[in-house]
Amino acid sequence: MSAATAVTTTKKTNTSAGNPRGPRQSIMSRGAAMLIMGVFTLYFLTPIWWLLVSSSKSGGDVTGTAPLWFTPDSIPTFFANLGNLFTYSDGVFGRWLLNSALYAGLGALLGTVIAAMCGYALAKYEFRGREAIFNVVLSGVLVPATALALPLFLIFSQVKLTNTLWAVFLPSLVSPFGVYLARIYAAASVPTELLEAARLDGSSEARTFFTVSTRLMAPALVTIFLFQFVAIWNNFFLPLIMLRDQALFPVTLGLYAWNSQISQIPELRVLVIVGALVSILPLIATFLGLQRFWSSGLGAGSVK
C-alpha cells in the first residue's frame, strides 16, 4: 500500500516538473513508466480485490467458485457475513476494532506530539550531547520492534503491567523515525529568526512551539502521525506477547487467533476474510483523508 503511494508520488513529481525532452521520447518513457506502474498497481490491488470478492461468499464458495469474481448472491451474502462477523462470540470483533482505534489513534497522536517535541528540541536548541542523543535515536530506527518485544515483556512483568492496555499503548508512543523526521523538517522549515522574534515578544518556549512551530511543521507531523498510525494498527508481535485477555486484543491479533483456529472451527475462515477487509478500511480512510499532507510532507523532507 505505502509502496504504491510512493510510486504515485514519484510519478507526479516527474510529470509536473515538466519534461524538456522531445515528445516522441516522452511517449516512450511515459509508456514504460505507465506499464511499470500498472503492473505494481495490479500487484498491490489484486489481493484487496480478492479480499473484497471473497468477503461476499459463503464458506464453501470461497474455495469452490472463481476466486476473483462474485457469485450471483454476493450482496446478501456479504451483509450476512458482516452480520456474523459482528455478532460472533458476543461481538468481540467490534471490541477489537475499538481497541485498535484506541491504540492506533491515541497512540499515534501522543506519539506524534512526543516525536515533534524531541525533533524540534534537537533541531532548534544547541546543547551538549545533542548529536550523541540524535545518533542514539537514529540507531533506534535500525532496531526492529519485534526484537524489543520480549525484553519489553520482561520489563512490564516486573511492574505487573502485562496483559493491560498500557502494555501495548506505552511502547506505541515511541517513534525514533518520527523524531528523525521532525528534526530534519524543523531544521528546514522553522526559521531560527522567527523563534528569536517570538522570544523578543515575550512568548514562552512552549507557547512558541505549540502556536508557531507546530504549524510550520504540520506536513511533517501529519506524516509522522500516519506512519505511527499504520505501524500501531499493524503491530502484531507486541500485543501477541503482552496480551492474554481477548477483550484487550487489537484487531490484528484477534484475526490471527481466529485464523489459527480455522482447522477446528471452519466457519471462522469466512469471518477472518471479512474481518481482514473491515480491518483495512480505517487505514484506507486515514490515508485518503491525510494523503495530501502526507505526500507534501515526504517531498519537503527529501528536497531540503
Binding site: L240, R244, Q261
Partner: peptide, 9 residues
C-alpha cells in the same frame, strides 16, 4: 483467556 493456538504463539 483465549489466544492463538499453541504453536502459533
Amino acid at each position: 483467556q483465549t489466544g492463538p493456538n499453541g504453536n502459533s504463539g
